[in-house]
Amino acid sequence: MIPGILAAMDLNRINIMKAIARRMEYTGERQRVLAENIANADTPNYKPKDLQKATFTDLVKGPSQRVTIAATQPGHISRTSAGSSNGSWKVERAKGDFEVAPNGNAVNLEQQTMMLAENQGEHNLMTNLYRKQVGLLRKALGPRQQ
Rank of each mutant, 00 (worst) to 15 (best):
M24R: 09
S81A: 15
A94W: 06
K47Y: 10
S78R: 10
T80N: 10
D58R: 07
D42W: 02
M17N: 06
K49I: 06
Y46E: 01
T113Q: 12
E99A: 14
Q73G: 00
P48F: 07
P74Y: 01
M114Y: 13
G96F: 11
A35N: 12
E99G: 02
Q52N: 10
E36S: 13
R30P: 09
M17E: 04
G104A: 02
T80F: 04
A70K: 12
F56G: 04
E92T: 15
Q120F: 04
D97P: 00
P63I: 04
T72H: 07
K90R: 14
T72M: 07
D50A: 15
R30Q: 15
V91P: 00
V107E: 01
L59Q: 14
A21F: 01
S78T: 15
M24N: 02
L34M: 09
M17G: 07
A117E: 13
P74N: 08
Q52R: 14
S81W: 02
A70Q: 12
L109E: 00
A106T: 03
V33P: 00
T57Y: 00
I77H: 07
A101V: 05
N86M: 10
R30S: 11
L34K: 04
M115H: 11
P63G: 09
N37M: 08
L51M: 11
E29R: 13
E122K: 11
S64G: 15
A94I: 09
I20Q: 01
L59W: 07
Y46C: 05
V33Y: 02
N108A: 08
V33G: 02
F56A: 08
R79C: 03
Q65E: 14
Q73D: 12
E92K: 12
A117N: 12
K90E: 14
Y26L: 12
Q73V: 02
L109G: 02
A19P: 04
Q120S: 09
Y46H: 06
A106S: 13
R79L: 09
V100C: 02
Y26S: 06
Q31R: 12
E25H: 09
I38Q: 09
P44D: 00
I14Q: 07
M24E: 10
N40D: 07
Q112K: 08
A117P: 06
K49N: 14
M115K: 14
K53D: 14
P44V: 02
V60D: 04
G104M: 00
T72Y: 04
P102W: 04
I16S: 10
A94S: 14
R22A: 13
N108M: 04
D42A: 08
Q120N: 10
N40K: 03
G75A: 12
A41S: 12
I38G: 06
P44M: 01
V67T: 10
Q65L: 03
K18E: 04
I14M: 07
M114L: 15
S84K: 11
T57L: 05
K49H: 13
W89N: 06
W89L: 06
Q120H: 08
L109P: 01
A94Q: 14
G75V: 05
A70G: 05
D50W: 09
K18Q: 05
V33D: 03
S78M: 06
A54D: 09
